[in-house]
Simulated assay, not measured.
Amino acid sequence: MPLRFLLLFSAAALQIGCGADPSPPSAPSPSAPPLPAPPPPAPEAASEKGRMVFIHGAGNGKDAGEITAHEAGCQKNELASCHALGLALMTPKDKEGDNNKRAFAAFEKGCQGGYAPSCNGLGVMYIQGMGVPRDVGRAMELYKKACEGEVSTACLHVAMAYEEGRHVTADWPAAIRFYESACAQGATQGCNTAAKAFAEGDRVARDPEKARKLYDRGCQEGDEDACKERDKIK
């Protein structure tokens, strides 16, 4: 047999699989039943660090599905779920109601586990007397703890209390320290208040360079007024 023919035959054999029957097409698999919808996501700690974390949009205990989902997560010691459960249950118009007692317990579990936003939530519960007797001293302790955990709103709570002498003895230097902490976490109110004090020497040593840096941080967070004030400092 000529060599040319052998080479052509070999090439053809490789292409058709040496005469093997092609595999029959696989039968389509039956459609799988749809998966159940995942539970509503609980707030992530990372998303709350360095940002304004308001205890807002109290759920008033109305969304039973959300409450059930977060309660299940909290029972598994998922602290973000405990925090979300507290938010879902908060009911400002019924301070002594069962919803607030359950919200308090959820925030307490989160805070004791080291979830700083829940310490801020507990502070709100104490300051408002929701689910627990009103205790402003305890609220301030919790706000400070949350501030140390980089919850900027908690830092602002403490700063304003010291500035206004609300719940504590007025202490402007302490207020400035907490405004600076809030600024470091991205709260422009803290940046602007502290910067203004240092720019004007308002009950603190005048420090234009420090004021410029604080305004610059506020500017980086998108506060146009902070940008303008920064640019005024020479």
Rank of each mutant, 00 (worst) to 15 (best):
D98T: 10
Y162G: 12
K93D: 08
T188N: 08
P25V: 09
S31A: 12
R4C: 15
G17C: 01
A69G: 12
G17Y: 02
G149Y: 04
Q185M: 13
F198T: 07
G123C: 08
K232W: 07
E44A: 06
P30I: 10
I55G: 06
L142S: 05
P40C: 00
C82I: 11
L14M: 14
R51E: 07
G73F: 02
P24I: 01
N100T: 10
D223L: 00
A12N: 00
G114F: 07
A46D: 04
F107I: 01
D207C: 08
P33I: 07
Q15G: 12
P173I: 14
G165H: 04
L87F: 13
Y115F: 06
G73V: 01
E96T: 13
Q112H: 14
A211L: 10
A184D: 09
N120S: 05
E108L: 12
P36M: 12
A32Q: 15
A103K: 03
A13I: 07
A69M: 04
P33W: 03
A42N: 00
R206K: 15
L89K: 07
A12W: 00
Q15P: 11
K196V: 12
M1Y: 15
Q185Y: 09
V124T: 05
P34E: 07
G131W: 07
A195H: 00
P36L: 01
V168G: 14
A175G: 07
A159Q: 06
A69P: 09
F9Q: 04
I67D: 04
F107E: 06
N120G: 02
Y215L: 00
A80Y: 00
D94M: 00
T153C: 09
S81A: 03
G123R: 01
L142I: 10
F5V: 04
G50L: 11
E209Q: 13
G97T: 02
P34G: 09
C227F: 02
F54W: 14
Q220K: 13
G190R: 09
G61D: 03
N192P: 07
D225Y: 05
S181I: 03
K93C: 08
A161E: 03
A32D: 11
A184W: 08
A64N: 05
T91S: 05
E148K: 09
Y126L: 00
P33A: 15
Y215E: 09
R166P: 05
V53N: 07
Q128E: 04
C111L: 08
K144E: 10
